[in-house]
Design a protein around this nucleic acid. Sequence first.
DNA 1: CATTATTTTCAATAAATTTTGAAACTTTAG
DNA 2: CTAAAGTTTCAAAATTTATTGAAAATAATG
Lengths: 171, 171
Amino acid sequence: MIYVCRDMQYEEAKSKFIQAWGTLGSSWGINKAMAQIHALLLISSEPITADEIMEELQMSRGNVNMNVRALMDWGIVQKQNKAGERKDFFIADKDVWELARQVSRERRRREIEPIIRVLSDVQKVDGKSDEISEFKSVTNELKEFSTKIDNVLEKFVKSDQNWFLKLLMNL
Amino acid sequence: MIYVCRDMQYEEAKSKFIQAWGTLGSSWGINKAMAQIHALLLISSEPITADEIMEELQMSRGNVNMNVRALMDWGIVQKQNKAGERKDFFIADKDVWELARQVSRERRRREIEPIIRVLSDVQKVDGKSDEISEFKSVTNELKEFSTKIDNVLEKFVKSDQNWFLKLLMNL
DNA sequence: CATTATTTTCAATAAATTTTGAAACTTTAG
DNA sequence: CTAAAGTTTCAAAATTTATTGAAAATAATG
């Protein structure tokens, strides 16, 4: 094994960032490997191959393949082909606002809209006991709140960065 | 085992809600048992004991104890004492806005602020290569974005419901 | 078409997380 | 103080989730 001499300070910063991004992902329900691959792609100045990801993050080909695919499903990573190269290259969208918008879009679709559907559905129960009243009242408040959040996110998803910045001014 | 005849429609709705809340929790990094206990407390018209939670959700005493404690750490569940009763009773805050505010407060403290600290820290690396420039640029954008989100959440946490509703009007 | 490079799949394995349950501990009542 | 009731702890077990690696599938090359 040959170690090329590289900028240690940078290598440490990079590793720290990848680590931290993985941990953040975990606490928001995103698998660590997926978040780490995303981190690596975010800071790569060039598109990189599965082999490079495997090497850099020390993970298996299967794991890289699965998680890169998941990132593509989220719409935040793309496959690229390089002329004269057979391998697939991957890049992450570097625009943080676009990233946030895309993540909002997906979480809305995958998590917020389904829970609103359940909340609407369970509302249909009838009865006037304390238990049932409390149930209807709480689930209704949750539904109304979720709907508001859903609407804000919808706006955000459809907006440009400027809209958000203006919103921030109004605070 | 004796089954008391209860409103089946309600029992199903309740179970569906608890299930869905648990699943939602999971996809946002909150353990399922914790989210389910929270769901049960949310819809309980009266404070309930650990035994009642165990019975209703079919989980062990240890599990209930651990997760109720975690919910108290999040500041969204409280212990109550009933006159003439030795057991602890638990209640969840029923105000959905207050709940959202409290969750925002905690996630800010536990996840957003730490990642901002890491992003600021890794920025300190120096060098002018493409690699390092890209690294600095991306981590800086992430830091600025996170700081903006942190500020919005801070406002939200300190605000009353009315502030948010007014904000929604402006959309 | 045969060969080789590359990607994908998926059963087996490993790792991480959650859950249990019984013992230790604490609190209250008598 | 003692006994009973209730709560907490935590090592072990169970479960869930993530990861590996090798075989199968696919795509490109000559």
